[in-house]
Design a binder for these strands. Structure first.
Lengths: 233, 233
DNA sequence: CGGTCCATTGAGCACCATCAAGACTTGTGG
DNA sequence: CCACAAGTCTTGATGGTGCTCAATGGACCG
């Protein structure tokens, strides 16, 4: 359910992230002019697990959660993606249904690259294929990281690590920011970390009682980075 | 620690799996003639997590476990790979150290493709780059599957699923076989499933007591596929 | 026959999910 | 402005799953 297509005049900005960036100059503008942007509201999935992969999406603004549904209706969050990330490309490459649901955590603007456009432009531009190999390798490592963390580390470690990540993110110089924000809701935070809201609440308050966090005013503020790093190991 | 390079005369067989297969005919033989095969004994890692990625390996025979080490010395098995699989290519593509250790479960024969050879041949053969995109997408999905299973499913579900996989594998027509064997040791089996030998033992004996398995003669035999499927969901 | 390796079994416990209830916030309508 | 409702966060109590540690039982082998 695409919501608000942005006005056409915005299309001269880099619009398909790394896809457009890796195209030869002469192709770039014509490629971008065929694409549209859409804004998705929070919780309105960009695509659903199990549905045919009709397009690849480049995230321009916002943040997206990729998750899978279990038999029992429970979710496993695979990854969190922000501006500059490409999503849905693996399913398109293999011609298979999406294996995850892509759910915006906030209002998120994406550039939609239809399946045919994507496969054609990749086939015709070897440079782009090489770039995609790198992108996918990086994404694959990130999934591996998630797997490792979920299997080996306690909730408190994973929590500390994620808070440190958000903290670094918020302090990064603007150009380096990847655009992740602290998810407003505890429930989202819990899903990302891979636990329940109850356990997360206990974990956060334990960390706060040790003076590492400040939870007083509805925001999570990191007070002691070094201590958190020790918790995160 | 490469062990026994096979005699040169064997090199006319397909030697670098999907890499050679995707090369134009005219290049294939010259490409393969530059490569060597090595046999690695069980438990003698082909490469180690954290070491510079000097080569990509194509598995010709045997089976390999990819795992990561935790701070506490514990291991997380990421994936199991068999004949036809390519390993180590993500690290080579990104020019980063290997993120996993590749440990043969049995005597395993691989074809070694040096980093420079690999990157050159990928750069020069767009067809191969496209093929690699598919290979990596598939591998990435498999890691995602592992993550999902580890986070959502109980040990008994994962055990049942893996036993069914091995059972199907052993009954497959030879051409379709991927060459996985039942790991001889309980400890290896436990690592693959993501649990401890103790818990695995209990799980197996529970399944056996329900008549789904036969553990009597040192081999695990599946007696009731349907029942196991229900356990695996 | 003792030694080693492996599988099994038992006992205890830690971590975390679940269920349930209470506290606090926010929004809505009178 | 207050009252009520709905949603969110917190806290408590409880239980299950699976890990750890330790002991036992076989199998194989010199």
């Amino acid at each position: 359910m695409p919501v608000t297509p942005l006005p056409r005049k915005h299309l001269d900005l880099p619009c398909a992230g790394c896809v457009a960036d890796s195209l030869p100059e002469r192709l770039r503008s014509s490629f971008c002019s065929t694409l549209f942007r859409h804004a998705y509201e929070a919780e309105q999935p960009i695509f659903h697990e199990g549905t045919p992969a009709l397009a690849v999406f480049s995230i321009l603004q916002g943040s997206v959660l990729l998750w899978r549904m279990g038999h029992a209706g429970d979710q496993v969050v695979i990854s969190m993606r922000g501006p500059g990330c490409l999503i849905g490309y693996r399913a398109v490459i293999l011609g298979r249904p999406y294996t995850v649901t892509a759910e915006p955590l906030e209002r998120t603007i994406v550039c939609t690259i239809p399946r045919e456009t994507f496969t054609r432009v990749v086939r015709e531009n070897p440079e782009l294929a090489l770039r995609l190999l790198e992108v996918m390798a990086r994404d694959s490592f990130r999934i591996e990281d998630t797997l490792t963390a979920r299997c080996m580390d306690s909730v408190s470690k994973r929590t500390a690590r994620f808070l440190l990540f958000l903290d670094r993110e918020s302090k990064a110089v603007p150009e380096l920011r990847r655009g992740f924000h602290l998810p407003a809701k505890r429930e989202d935070l819990a899903r990302i970390i891979g636990t329940t809201p109850e356990t997360l609440s206990r974990t956060l308050h334990t960390l706060a009682s040790r003076g590492f966090l400040d939870l007083s005013d509805k925001q999570i503020r990191v007070l002691n980075v070094e201590a958190l790093q020790r918790v995160a190991e």
